[in-house]
């Protein structure tokens, strides 16, 4: 009997401890930029969802495709309808780990350069991603920033020849996530 109680307490304790190291955002920022001979295309997304777990050095990101906003609404329509097929694949996501050279905790206030490795899924296609990122630990929050390139063709996104000069083959992705502590309900 005592045995069960201690196991239960142990588990309960673990849950509480691990929750303290998790940070969440529901309105993170992701931007992509495509520079082609005929035009530059930029789209902003302010509805990015992510959790970073300092104890496990893990991060997960969900990017709702329909939340990308363009200068021209026709671009947004083509982006969703013809390229990313957002009805079939409503989200892009990332799941991975980071390495800061040491175990980071909430007490390591300041800016840390980390190497991120993981799986990036766009348009239903998953590819490995390696990127350098900056993790800024503040009192009560965490900020993560990174910039990396994505080859459009890697994710089975076809660009017809007629718009070859309008859309770049490689687009630059900028990420800026401001996390707050995850409150356990």
């Amino acid at each position: 009997m005592k045995y069960i109680v201690s196991i239960a307490l142990l588990f309960a304790g673990m849950v509480t401890v691990s929750a303290q190291d998790k940070y969440i955002t529901k309105n993170g920022f992701v931007k992509f930029f495509s520079s082609a001979p005929l035009e530059d295309i930029e789209a902003d997304n302010n509805n990015v969802q992510s959790i970073v777990d300092l104890a496990a050095s893990e991060v997960v990101i969900n990017i709702p495709i329909q939340s990308f906003e363009f200068d021209k609404s026709l671009m947004k329509e083509h982006f969703n309808e013809n390229y990313l097929e957002s009805e079939k694949f409503p989200k892009a996501s990332f799941k991975g780990k980071y390495d800061a050279g040491k175990q980071l905790t909430a007490k390591d206030i300041g800016s840390h350069t980390v190497a991120v490795t993981g799986d990036l899924t766009i348009h239903g296609v998953t590819r490995p991603l390696l990127a350098k990122a900056t993790l800024i630990i503040k009192a009560g929050g965490v900020q993560a920033k990174t910039k990396f390139d994505v080859r459009v063709a890697d994710f089975d996104i076809e660009i017809p020849r007629i718009v070859f000069k309008n859309i770049a083959e490689v687009v630059e992705v900028t990420v800026d996530l401001q996390y707050t502590k995850l409150d356990k309900q």
Partner: peptide, 9 residues
Amino acid sequence: LMSLLDDQT
């Protein structure tokens, strides 16, 4: 962590 994120959002 991904299902936790899905639960939270």
